[in-house]
Design a binder for these strands. Sequence first.
DNA 1: CTAAAATACGAGCAGATGCTCGTGTTGTCT
DNA 2: AGACAACACGAGCATCTGCTCGTATTTTAG
Lengths: 224, 224
Amino acid sequence: MASQNAVTEGTPARPRRQARGQQRIEEILHAAAAVFGEQGYDATTTNSIAKRAGISPGSLYQFFKNKDDIARALAEHYATQLTALRAGVFTIENLDGAGLEDTVDAVLGPLVAFNLAHPGFKALFARTDMPAGLRDAVTPIQVTIHHRVADLIAHFMPDRALDDIARIATVSIQLVRGMTPLITEADGPERDALTAELRTAVISYLSQQVARVPQHTRPRAARA
Amino acid sequence: MASQNAVTEGTPARPRRQARGQQRIEEILHAAAAVFGEQGYDATTTNSIAKRAGISPGSLYQFFKNKDDIARALAEHYATQLTALRAGVFTIENLDGAGLEDTVDAVLGPLVAFNLAHPGFKALFARTDMPAGLRDAVTPIQVTIHHRVADLIAHFMPDRALDDIARIATVSIQLVRGMTPLITEADGPERDALTAELRTAVISYLSQQVARVPQHTRPRAARA
DNA sequence: CTAAAATACGAGCAGATGCTCGTGTTGTCT
DNA sequence: AGACAACACGAGCATCTGCTCGTATTTTAG
């Protein structure tokens, strides 16, 4: 956005990255994701991230202001990948004619896969009590996610009040967030079973909500 | 390690408490619950607990071995009160003839009230990623809770396999745990609304599970 | 009353953690 | 080639946190 060249002084300490630096940044984020996923955010030390990335602490701080800054960058990284995921799989247009179950499947499947592929994700997003710095880093992205889910839900209950929709979206997200650590920490068949349980929980909750106002809505969720 | 007591050597460093000390212990636990609830477990310092309790750090460590020990004692304190709660409200015998909805209500209502009355509770139990010390402190009690919930659930689906029952109990508990922080942090009417949503989610999830095996079970959940 | 145990104090230690700083190396631009 | 910026290093600083220790006071036991 702002001019990063030497002439203007808009962003003081923002160096012009070279290719090496860009790669380092990605290596650091990769290492941070791994360590966050294994140890949790609080227990993760910046020195351990540097060690994991194969660099010195000093080098790390050439690319990131502090620990929260790493979390913020990683959160944005995840947000970007989630956006790509959405574009590829569960666009609203693609699901407009689909039923509730198919929609939930279309969202939940890739989301679980994403959590398994990116162990750091749940460490940043699936916590209920966050330190202030982490909270600031992830809330904007949580708001974005909430908007998308609310849009999706609104399609199935168009005559509900907006704050009802918002609340149902919040609850749905929270159901998923609560189950995610259980799923990622389980192995093989138990993991599949828990994923199926999550699917059941979300679908039955949302079905109940759809059925709640049967006048205007056509509650035939399974077939369009 | 050396025995400082005269006669028996059963519990080496366990002094014979006087009335004053017992009261101090309760004051410390009360203070710890408050600070845990406000700051979270990690952010809470032992010195801040001592300050809140109106004593010096040295005095605190005359009654508790370390920070985890405080958490463990507080967790046991909560477990005791929960047991009293169960005895008073939702004994299995009392609910044997009741339907699923009434049973869930009988559990969820007092449980939410308990969470509101004891702000430290969710800081100890409602976290998904716990430091090792805290995990050790609360897991025994979580196992107890899980047993009780599984017993309750088993009454509604007697022909399900034991690990199915266990998994359903785990998921149910997780649904409640995930929603608890949302509920306690909300105010007035929004809190009530979220509580109602939690009720809906749990009941619809469990109803779905009860309906899944209709052969042997009599799925007349609402009326006995 | 007296000795021992329990309670109380609070300055401060040992260890850890996020982060810095001085210095040296690599890359880029002219 | 020279100059400057980006990159890299790692010992170590400043700070915090859980906890201790020497000491003083209160309570209990005999």
